[in-house]
Every structure is written in C-alpha cells, then in structure tokens.
Amino acid sequence: MTAAIVIITVLIFIAAMLCAVMLIAWRSFGRPRHALVWALAFAVATAQWFSNLALRLQADDNTALHALTAALGCLSNALIAVGFVQRNRAPRRVRPLLAAALVASLLIGVANFVEPVMGIRYSTGLGFGGLMMLVSAFNVAGGFRQASLPERAVMVMLTLFAAIDFSLAAIAMGPGTANDEGSLFFFRSVVTMLYPIAFTGVGLFSVFLVAADLADDMRRLATSDMLTGVYNRRGFEDSAERAIRNAQRQRQPLSVVVADIDNFKLINDRHGHTVGDRALRHFASRLERLVRRGDLIGRIGGEEFALLLVNTRPQDALEVVERIRRDIAAMPVDGAARIVMTASFGVTGLRPGDISLASLLARADRALYRSKLEGRDRVTSADELEEVA
C-alpha cells in the first residue's frame, strides 16, 4: 500500500467525520442552514476521496472517473463557500457559486475527454478551489475590522488555504500541454504533502466557527431580554460599566437615561398581557430606531428601560430623549386596540466622581421619579433637579 493510498483513506475518514460533526451541530444547535450545507459539502468530499481512491487502485487511466472526481471536488469547494455566504446572510451570492462549480466541472471534463492533459486537468480544479476559499474568507464577516477574533482567525486561515491551492495549481501547470511523467510525479508528491493539510484545516476551522457562533448565541441569550431583544439588566450593566470606564479613560462625556412606561398596569388590566407584551416590544423598537448605533439599550425592570448614550453631554441627551418622548406619544402600538402610550424619563451625565453605573442610575431614577410626580409624559434632568434643590 502506497503512502498516497494511506493518505486518501485517512482523508475519507476525516471528511466523513466532519460531515457527521456538522450534522450533529445542525441538529442540536438551532438548525443553522450553513451547518447543514457544510455537512453536505463534506459528504460530497467523502465521495470525492472514494473516487480518488478508486483511481489510485486502478491500473489504467480512467478518464470518466477523473472527470467525476474533479466535478465532486468543485462541488464540495463551492458548497463550503455557499455555507459561508449563508452564514453571512447573503443568499443572492449562492447561485453564482453553484454556476461557477458547474462551469469549472465542464472545463475539467473537456480537459479530460477532448484534450486529456494532466496539468490542465489538475490546475483547473485546484484554481477553482483556491477561488472558493477566497470567496469563503470574504464572506466570513462584513470586514476584517468588524470581525470577531474567531472570525479573523478563520479569514486568515482560509486565505492561507487559498494560497496553497493556487500554488498547487501553478505547480500543476508545470507539465504544460505534455504529460511529463517527471513533472507529474513532483506535482503529486507536493499535493500529497500540502493538500491534506489544507482540506483538514478548512474542515476544522469550519467546525471552530460553528462552535464560536454557538458560544456567541449562548452569551447573547444570557445578556438579552427574551421579549424585546434588547439587553437585560445583567447585559446592560456589564456593557455600561465598560463604556463608563472607557469614557473616563478617554475623558469623553456620557449620559444615562432611565425610562418608564406610564400607567403600564392599566394596559395589562384592560387589554391583557399579550397586548402588554406587544407594547413592551413596541417601546423597545422605538428606542432602537431613535438612538445611534453604539448606544446601549436595556430593559432593567418590568416596564422600565435604561439608555446609555456614548460621547453625549447631558444637555444633548435631553434633546435626544425629548425626541424619543414625542415619538412614543405619537406612535400607537400595532394591533386592533391602537393603544397610545406615554413614558417618563430621567437623565443624568457622567461626573468625575462616578466610579460605577449604580451612581448614575440612582440620579437618573430620582429624576424619573420627579417626572412621575409632575404628571408623567415628561423628561427631567438630574442636574437641573439638584440645582433647584
């Protein structure tokens, strides 16, 4: 048994195991579509390595089997790229990838049946594989700077695997248009050393990314309010403490707002808890629409919410919150009842002596209490309240 046959046999088991792992991940972790596509990609890769093994065991050069092996390889690489595209929520890019796999398979088929040149046959498949790895790296995240640490690692490794594929494709073109046995032997030796590393690496990093996504989902569930989708109290406090430390370090302004829906108990009593839940979701969605990306929103009590406005002075925060107050009063809750809500707000800014979120929340809460006492549906500044006192 040659070393190549041993390596191919090992790759069959690796591809089959990766397929099984992806199927388990898809079945157990919320059925993400990209995990199912990757499972299919590694199933196709398993068939490809079986076909490759059959080629090695045959004495003659089977042109049809060569074409089948190459077509399966193109399809597997295309499906890996499709999985990354689906994870990145860009479904419009899926069909072009599958069409490209079909074109590459046809080109390899032509190279096998019309002009059976080994160099062209191998370089086309490897070049297509490298292209699919680059597409995958491009679709891991919206950009390298916005990517998480696991996503950056996957992007770097996919780029390296693309470089391996392109290098092997260049080596494959070495024999040119003639089937030079010496050059082909060199090419196959290099493939035996490098391609298993690239293939196994792509599989392992795909599994790694699924695991990282699961960890992010679990972390998000632990810090998010299930009803409204904004931060829960724990998530808001953790993120706000980091924002406060950063503002103090950078000497930047920061404002905290506490909001409370007026007479929320009456909504529940008159219309039921289903409508009350809809009102809470409506309130949270209006807040998300009216604050900037990077500001924090949290549901810290039943009908009580908190905002942290980064790089915002208290007087500017008052203008933002007044705009929110008017929007809440003007936009009825969707549904047959068409409920019009109002809300009360308390606002405060970061001061030099503030060392934690608790002191800001306490001041904002006192301002909110004054808004309630003075008739609700209004905004009160903690600074102005203290000046009056």
Rank of each mutant, 00 (worst) to 15 (best):
G375T: 08
R366D: 01
F236E: 09
L227G: 05
A100R: 02
T223Q: 07
N232M: 08
A39Q: 01
Y195T: 06
V310M: 05
R338V: 12
I171S: 11
V103A: 07
H34G: 12
D269E: 05
L168R: 15
C74I: 05
D213H: 11
V103Q: 01
G176D: 12
G235W: 07
V44A: 06
V275I: 09
G203N: 10
R270D: 00
V156F: 08
Q48F: 07
A367C: 03
M17I: 11
A306F: 00
D377E: 10
A153V: 08
D354V: 13
A141V: 07
R27S: 14
R281G: 09
M17V: 08
Y369M: 11
M226Q: 09
G182F: 04
A15N: 08
L296F: 03
D238S: 13
S76H: 10
F128R: 05
A247Q: 06
D61P: 02
L194E: 14
A222K: 05
P253I: 01
H66I: 03
A211R: 10
V190A: 15
R366V: 03
T380V: 13
N77R: 04
A329Y: 00
D217R: 15
F186T: 14
R31E: 12
R376M: 00
R370Y: 00
R234T: 07
A39T: 01
T228L: 12
L209N: 13
L309R: 04
V210T: 13
R366M: 06
A54K: 02
A163P: 14
D165H: 15
T192R: 13
D277R: 14
S371N: 10
V333I: 14
N62Q: 09
W49Q: 11
D262K: 00
A71E: 06
R363C: 02
A47G: 12
G201Y: 02
L204F: 14
A317L: 05
D238L: 14
S285I: 07
G294D: 03
L184A: 13
L72S: 06
A81G: 06
F50G: 15
L18R: 06
A170W: 04
E386T: 03
L79V: 01
L204H: 08
C74R: 02
A78H: 07
N268K: 05
Y369W: 08
S123N: 02
T192V: 01
A4G: 12
I355W: 00
L40A: 15
A343D: 04
L227S: 06
R145Q: 14
R351C: 08
R92N: 07
E319K: 05
M331P: 04
D213I: 07
A240W: 10
R220N: 15
C74S: 12
R293H: 13
R220D: 12
R245T: 02
V103L: 06
I171P: 08
L266D: 10
L98V: 11
F283H: 07
F161G: 13
Q48I: 02
I261M: 06
P175L: 01
H34C: 14
R219C: 07
G353K: 07
F128S: 09
D238G: 10
F13G: 10
L254V: 11
L102I: 08
F113W: 11
D327P: 12
N232W: 01
A329F: 00
Q146A: 15
I300A: 08
L204D: 07
V94E: 02
T274E: 14
S189G: 14
